[in-house]
Design a protein around this nucleic acid. Structure first.
Length: 648
DNA sequence: GCCGTTTTCGGCCCGACTGTTTTCAGTCG
């Protein structure tokens, strides 16, 4: 769930029902859940709001229709109470009183405090009630002047942990992007795996699940009991460790810094407007002196698959697996899968002696009558049902080998750093069959957008190269397109005559401020209007979000995708972009599955502004996998000939 | 607040670590 956004209840924007969209209601439920936590409400009641929000978020049916037909209550996780509140809001435009009271009665600063590590709702509540602390600034002041340590249940350590937690929150908003997590995680995993006595070391957690942002790193290490202490010592002696936060028998908590990278740490080229959104040069400074938290778990080789599965998560996926275990008279935890009848009252590792054996994760899933679920899919978004023996089956996920090219890339004609020739050579070196060139359009002055004349000249150059490659028997071709800004009223940036000469047109929103300040309905309608233009082939970075920088503009992406599906049914070529830049990863993976259901091909695009930028495609593939996409679902799998025919 | 082939009450996933305690609560994953 995106943080930072408004915690006000949305106002109804229309004259008649439905007054609110599905995404608005889902986000309100999430907020109510968090606010209830801060009130110290029943934890199970809190969970039902969180569940309700998640269920609504993954729902593809139209919420207005569900409410009108009374089917809302049929949705699993939505009972009488939630359905009543949701229906009232959707039909009458009025939020339930208790939800309003929660929003009005909770200072926004308390929500912000939840972002501080090791500080949860109970203690925030206590701090608020006993010291009257309303926001992070006040909390910091109180901690600095020593007012917190004397409180019941607090102490000197808690007080200083709060201060360092605040610092972390301010530095990184407490979460990091996937690319940062993968770089640190894979480097540390390799170092641990190379230690003597280590049987296996595997990166787990949200990084293994390829979530777009991650909290901290989890690394599970298999080691025999007799080597346990030596390995633990060896890990503590590795380079890259800035601080040791704690070390128990099974868990070591560390802070890593960039000295982990033997070859140094650089960010590479960042697109100018992206850089601006995440804090400009200050961000680059921050990241190069950055740190990341890591937990290392040492376990026996026998327990390793269970611990790996457990710490890969997600929490929701684990809960589903445990429920399946319970139905089968088994107890599932990080040590094993234990028959209740044999373990009796034994706990933890003692009980684990009775565990069913599993040499890898696949055997754990098999014990629960499931096929192995790829980590990226473990979000309780339908993967458990699909993995059931006799279920619909899990998708055969796309991989890097499926990629034969990508359509959205820039050159020096607009704001790219490499020439057309350099980009083509780089694509050939990657083993690609084709590459799409799509520089910025003329209105986007800040990115040196190309005037029609220059754009068409680029097209003639591309035709010449294509002819040469064909003559020489080289299996490579360029597609000539443009990334057209979406102008007022959903218009494209060139005349139809110019657009007609291009292979593909990527329509993207760049006037982010304007779109962010408009309501969801208007944005949705304008996007659809632009897509209805016959020349538009691809919707580029659909919401304009910059991870850790800014939220996307409000838009009902489900409705946009449905409109695209209808246009496709009429025979028009419409793809949706999954922008592979690790700063964007937009289309969100949660929507990829919906695009797939609607049979809209997803175009994974590095949006490369340099030769090196093409490599970002890798993050797009990871996220596409998370979104259930197989090779057949992505444009990049097509061979040049087939793509040429489709675009024609 | 949700749920039900133990169905309208009484459950709701489970364990480690930390810091505060003297048997445990809060937080995290």
């Amino acid at each position: 769930m995106a943080g930072g956004g408004s915690w006000k209840l949305p106002e109804p924007r229309r004259a008649g029902p439905p007054f609110f969209t599905r995404s608005q209601v889902a986000s309100v439920l999430h907020q109510v859940g968090v606010l209830l936590e801060l009130q110290g409400a029943n934890p199970f009641r809190i969970r039902s709001y969180a569940n309700g929000s998640r269920m609504l978020g993954s729902l593809t049916a139209d919420l207005g229709e569900l409410v009108a037909s009374g089917e809302l209550i049929e949705v699993k996780g939505i009972g009488k109470g939630l359905a009543g509140g949701i229906s009232q809001a959707v039909e009458q435009g009025v939020w339930p009183e208790d939800w309003v009271a929660l929003h009005e009665g909770t200072p926004a600063g308390l929500i912000e405090m939840l972002g501080i590590p090791n500080l949860g709702p109970k203690r925030i509540k206590q701090l608020h009630e006993e010291l009257g602390l309303d926001d992070v600034e006040a909390l910091q002041g109180a901690a600095e002047s020593g007012e917190i340590a004397p409180l019941d249940g607090f102490g000197e350590k808690s007080q200083s942990k709060i201060l360092s937690g605040i610092e972390l929150l301010k530095r990184f908003n407490a979460r990091r992007r996937l690319d940062i997590g993968m770089r640190y995680g894979q480097a540390f995993e390799e170092k641990i795996a190379a230690l003597e006595g280590v049987e296996k070391a595997t990166l787990a957690g949200s990084t293994r699940r390829r979530l777009e942002t991650i909290g901290d790193l989890d690394i599970v290490v298999a080691v025999e009991a007799e080597n346990h202490d030596d390995v633990a010592q060896a890990i503590l002696g590795l380079s890259g460790i800035a601080d040791v936060k704690g070390a128990g028998d099974s868990k070591i908590s560390l802070i890593l810094d960039t000295s982990l990278f033997d070859e140094g740490f650089t960010l590479g080229h960042i697109d100018a407007n992206v850089l601006e959104a995440i804090g400009g040069e200050a961000y680059e400074q921050l990241e190069s002196s950055g740190t990341i938290d890591a937990q290392v778990r040492l376990v026996s080789p026998r327990a390793f698959p269970y611990t790996l599965a457990y710490f890969t998560g997600s929490k929701e996926h684990n809960i589903r697996l445990r429920q399946r275990a319970i139905e089968r008279g088994l107890r599932l935890n990080e040590f094993g899968l234990i028959p209740e009848a044999e373990a009796g009252d034994l706990k933890g590792q003692e009980a684990a002696k009775f565990s069913l054996p599993a040499k890898d994760e696949a055997e754990i899933y098999a014990h629960l009558d499931l096929a192995w679920v790829p980590p990226a899919l473990r979000e309780d978004m339908g993967e458990v049902e699909a993995a059931e023996i006799g279920g619909t089956g899990l998708p055969n996920l796309v991989c890097m080998n499926s990629i034969h090219g990508a359509l959205h890339n820039h050159t020096v004609l607009s704001d790219g750093q490499a020439t057309l020739e350099q980009m083509a050579e780089a694509a050939i070196r990657l083993g690609w069959d084709w590459l799409g060139i799509s520089d910025h359009s003329q209105s986007l002055r800040i990115a040196n957008g190309a005037i029609a004349e220059d754009l068409l000249a680029q097209g003639r150059k591309i035709s010449t190269y294509n002819a040469q490659w064909a003559e020489q028997g080289i299996n490579f071709r360029l597609f000539h397109g443009v990334e057209s800004d979406i102008l007022e009223g959903g218009k494209l940036d060139y005349s139809d005559e110019v657009l007609g000469q291009l292979d593909h047109v990527i329509a993207s929103v760049h006037a982010i401020t304007k779109w962010s300040n408009r309501d969801e309905m208007t944005n949705t309608e304008e996007l659809i209007k632009c897509l209805e233009h016959p020349a538009t082939t691809i919707l580029g970075h659909p919401t304009g979000r910059i991870l850790q920088g800014r939220d996307g503009f409000p838009v009902d992406m489900h409705a946009v995708l449905r409109a695209m599906a209808e246009l496709r049914a009429d025979g028009q070529v419409k793809f949706v972009e999954l922008n592979a830049s690790p700063y964007r990863l937009d289309l969100d993976w949660r929507l990829c599955k919906y695009a797939k259901e609607l049979a809209i091909p997803v175009s994974i695009n590095p949006d490369a502004h340099s030769v090196g930028g093409l490599a970002d495609i890798h993050y797009g593939v990871e996220v596409a996998r998370k979104g259930w996409l197989s090779s057949e679902d992505v444009v990049n799998y097509m061979r040049a000939e087939q793509l040429g025919e489709v675009l024609n």
